[in-house]
Design a protein around this nucleic acid. Structure first.
Length: 502
DNA sequence: CTAGGGTTAG
């Protein structure tokens, strides 16, 4: 139709990204007048896309509902729009609605890619498996790299990293692109497989695939969690050699976090100050505040927090975890309580369980175990096992056996408490108080309970450290490390020295 | 109409 090409040129092409909501509405109004809706599904789809770009999901839905002949692109555009606006469940609903009501509209690889990313956002593993089965049984799509990448990322986000990895190994290596590598590497890091993530990164480097910003954010995160300072520094030099990488805020923030967690507060701070003040966001501040808190520099952490507020950056839940832990480590009980209060009263953030835990731990550590107990009794959450453990640890430090016993009675009343930590902690408290008999009877009780529940002994935790680029792993009670003897000897020496100063 | 990304205490 000629009027369309003259008055609505933008609708005949893929939409520009710069149109405002009012402009979009104006074009829409015009389109209705010229009855474009009935004639050109292609143009209507472009209009639909315009709405989704401006984030106007309700107008998009309105328009969609009035399209007489929706095609697969109309459906796909709206399905994607829901996920982008943070309502992936609506995406899934719309997809099934399409299957139910429009049997002639067959989802193509693009629709399915979009649907998989909705499922990833939901994190629903059962749905993920159902969708995967649907693709295998109802379509003949194979070897589509977009869909393959979406599958890998969906399984990772739903917590099934083994399936994600299996799918990765099955992608044809000729088709693999940077997104394929990034999907599996960040999938590994977000599922706690940091060493595996780094080794896959090395493999990627060896075969000459150039990492981009997304890759680096993932591997820096892996280093942060492994304490792999050397590798982290090597990545940092790699980053400095590229203009685009060094100016990426995701990367600079990941660097702050990495240096902070790897124990190099100086380097973390250097990266932080290298960011132009106006480019610092809530992530930069939060990472730096948390790093300072972890290094026992509570005062500096709080100063930075004050500075952040002055700079007009809004703190979020995570920022307050850092702030509260800074107060905790520095023993600023009153300050910590007032920051906790300010969360809801000034910053409009409802404290979560994690915040209550920080405060309870802070009170208990400062010797106010009774107050801590009161605090968690009055909180709007059910205390978790970690909270009870931190109270018990405080009782141990402050040698308060009777309070510990009363806490144990409350823990015992709580039927779904399955953690053995309490018993270990409590028996340590008895041992410290020279009440070995009570300690051993507690051990008996623990064994009985374990038998009754047919519970296996808990997997021991492990710790990691990197020296000269090599990561060493230590498990509780394990002597698998080649230098175990020397390490134990050194530990013994340190212990003797500490005793001397005590 | 399509895939991948950052800060969370003890």
């Amino acid at each position: 139709m000629i009027p369309c090409t003259i008055t609505l040129p933008s609708l005949l092409n893929p939409p520009a990204k710069t149109l405002s909501q009012t402009e979009t509405k104006a074009i829409h109004a015009h389109a209705i007048k010229t009855s474009l809706l009935d004639s050109h599904v292609h143009s209507v789809n472009n209009l639909l896309k315009l709405y989704t770009i401006s984030g106007d999901i309700s107008s998009a839905r309105n328009l969609f509902d009035r399209i007489p002949h929706r095609d697969i692109i109309s459906w796909t555009t709206l399905i994607h729009a829901y996920t982008k606006s943070g309502t992936p469940y609506e995406s899934i609903r719309l997809f099934f609605q399409m299957l139910d009501t429009s049997p002639d509209t067959k989802p193509d690889q693009i629709t399915l890619t979009v649907v998989l990313s909705a499922c990833a956002a939901l994190g629903d593993l059962q749905l993920a498996r159902d969708l995967h089965t649907y693709i295998n049984t109802n379509t003949s799509i194979t070897n589509d790299i977009h869909l393959g990448n979406a599958l890998i990322s969906m399984y990772s986000k739903c917590g099934d990293i083994d399936t994600a990895y299996k799918l990765f190994t099955r992608t044809r290596s000729a088709k693999r692109n940077i997104v394929t590598w990034n999907s599996i590497i960040s999938g590994l890091t977000s599922n706690g497989k940091f060493k595996e993530a780094l080794s896959l990164f090395c493999r990627m480097q060896r075969i000459g695939v150039k990492p981009d910003q997304v890759t680096l954010v993932a591997v820096l995160n892996a280093c942060a969690n492994l304490g792999a300072l050397d590798i982290g520094q090597w990545l940092h030099t790699l980053i400095t050699q590229s203009q685009t990488l060094i100016n990426n805020r995701f990367i600079t923030n990941a660097l702050i976090d990495m240096y902070g967690k790897c124990g190099s507060i100086d380097r973390a701070h250097r990266v932080f100050t290298s960011i132009k003040p106006k480019h610092r966001d809530v992530y930069s501040y939060t990472s730096m505040i948390t790093a300072l808190a972890m290094h026992g520099q509570g005062e500096k952490a709080l100063q930075l927090f004050a500075y952040m507020l002055k700079a007009g950056i809004k703190p979020n839940r995570v920022t307050f975890i850092g702030v509260l832990s800074a107060c905790n480590h520095a023993g600023f009980v009153a300050t910590g309580l007032s920051h906790f209060q300010s969360m809801s009263s000034i910053h409009n953030i409802e404290p979560q369980m994690e915040h209550y835990s920080c405060v309870a731990d802070m009170l208990a550590r400062a010797g106010l175990v009774e107050e801590a107990l009161n605090f968690i009794k009055n909180m709007p959450f059910k205390p978790d096992s970690a909270m009870w453990s931190s109270l018990l640890s405080a009782c141990r430090i402050h040698r308060n056996v009777s309070l510990a016993e009363s806490i144990m009675r409350q823990v015992d009343n709580d039927n779904d408490n399955e953690d053995e930590d309490y018993y270990v902690l409590m028996s340590n408290i008895y041992t410290d108080a020279k009440r070995e008999r009570d300690a051993s009877s507690l051990h008996m009780e623990m064994r009985k309970k374990r038998k009754a529940k047919k519970k296996k002994k808990k997997e021991p935790g492990c710790s990691l450290i990197e020296i000269n680029g090599q990561v060493h792993e230590f498990k509780m009670g394990s002597i698998s490390h080649p230098q175990t003897k020397d390490i134990h000897l050194m530990l013994h020496n340190i212990h003797t020295h500490l005793k001397y100063y005590h």
